[in-house]
């Protein structure tokens, strides 16, 4: 058997929903365990006081990257079937900026707000309602911003193709970036802790 199972037709739409449900439960569980269910914890990333979420996220990225690469290398996974979105440079830059601002202010991203709702956090309920209202506004506005939405299309590109560099080198660079990031994060945490203890006197 080769993954991805759904694309190869090993199971049908109905079964895929059950699989998604099971994976979703475990994903939520892991997010909650990682501290993603707390707005304070998420906001702390941006004040460099507790970088746990950053570390969990980057570890997940590196783990998934190494796993996908080696699974496809030994022939267990057909990477050409793994979907990734198309790039629309400017709209995605702006969208990322808006999401980031919302992230700092609200303390959640869409997924983590769902996790936080399940543990009964009221702020998360309002966050999710706001998100849905935003979706509604976006939907109503869409005819006016369609041109911008589809501007600067670059198609389905990835870094190795864009830069013309070997996959492995990109992998190594991301791994080194992660390790550098972790070191910097711990250093920042220490620095902020000292600052805070000084401020308290």
């Amino acid at each position: 058997m080769t993954a991805p199972f759904f694309k190869f037709g090993y199971f049908n739409d109905e079964v895929s929903l059950i699989v998604a449900f099971v994976i979703g439960i475990f994903f939520g569980l892991v997010l909650e365990k990682g501290g993603f269910g707390s707005a304070r914890m998420l906001a702390a990333q941006f004040y460099f006081t507790d970088m746990r979420v950053f570390k969990v996220m980057f570890t997940a990225i590196v783990t998934a990257m190494i796993g996908l690469f080696y699974f496809s290398w030994i022939g267990f996974l057909d990477l050409s079937l793994v979907y990734y979105g198309e790039t629309f440079l400017l709209p995605q830059l702006l969208g990322g900026l808006i999401l980031g601002v919302g992230f700092v202010i609200g303390g959640y991203c869409p997924g983590t707000s769902a996790v936080a709702i399940s543990t009964g956090r009221i702020d998360a309920i309002f966050y999710a309602l706001g998100g849905m209202f935003g979706i509604f506004v976006f939907g109503e506005m869409f005819p006016y911003i369609t041109d911008f939405f589809y501007s600067t299309p670059m198609g389905q590109i990835n870094l190795p193709d864009l830069l013309g560099i070997n996959y492995g080198i990109i992998m190594l660079l991301v791994i080194l970036m992660a390790i550098g990031g972790f070191t910097a994060a711990e250093w920042a945490e220490k620095l902020m802790a000292e600052k805070q203890s000084k401020a308290r006197g």
């Binding site: 190494i66 496809s72 990477l79 050409s80 996959y167 992660a178």
Partner: peptide, 20 residues
């Protein structure tokens, strides 16, 4: 971290995962 770096270095010599 060390295991990750080793896997990263090995991957440079592995073939392109997309070419099947």
């Amino acid at each position: 971290g060390i295991v990750a770096i080793i896997l990263g270095i090995v991957s440079i010599f592995a073939s392109n995962p997309f070419s099947n």
